[in-house]
């Protein structure tokens, strides 16, 4: 699909910024989603091409303004919902209850 992920040759996206003090995971949730990807992939819930396509279907502004691991969250969540592994309502309800517990 001709989506925002197909970046080769685009102008205006800014300089390439290197961070010498970069860490692999900046937040603990990045670690967990990295692990969850493997668990869902290794468990056979989706393949890598389905996963890439799920990320491509992100809303373009959100794609450009969110981080790499947020793309993963979107990809994993949308595939697990589409395949009926989890429910959208179930996820929303769990977020609410976790928020309440925090």
């Amino acid at each position: 699909m001709n989506s925002i992920h197909d970046l080769g040759g685009m102008h205006g996206l800014g300089p390439v910024l290197q961070d010498p003090n970069e860490v692999l995971f900046r937040h603990d949730w990045e670690r967990r989603i990295f692990g969850l990807f493997f668990a869902a992939f290794g468990g056979g819930h989706f393949n890598i091409d389905e996963f890439r396509h799920a990320v491509e279907r992100m809303e373009p502004v959100h794609y450009l303004t969110s981080s790499y691991y947020e793309h993963w969250v979107h990809g994993i969540e949308s595939l697990l919902i589409a395949k009926g592994v989890i429910g959208q309502d179930e996820l929303a309800a769990r977020m609410l209850s976790l928020k309440g517990a925090a």
């Binding site: 967990r32 989603i33 969250v73 969540e77 989890i86």
Partner: peptide, 17 residues
């Protein structure tokens, strides 16, 4: 953070991870 926590806890509850 909440979304990832919610995802993990649901999948754990379903014994999928």
């Amino acid at each position: 953070e909440l979304r990832v926590k919610a995802l993990e806890s649901i999948l754990q509850e379903k014994q999928l991870i």
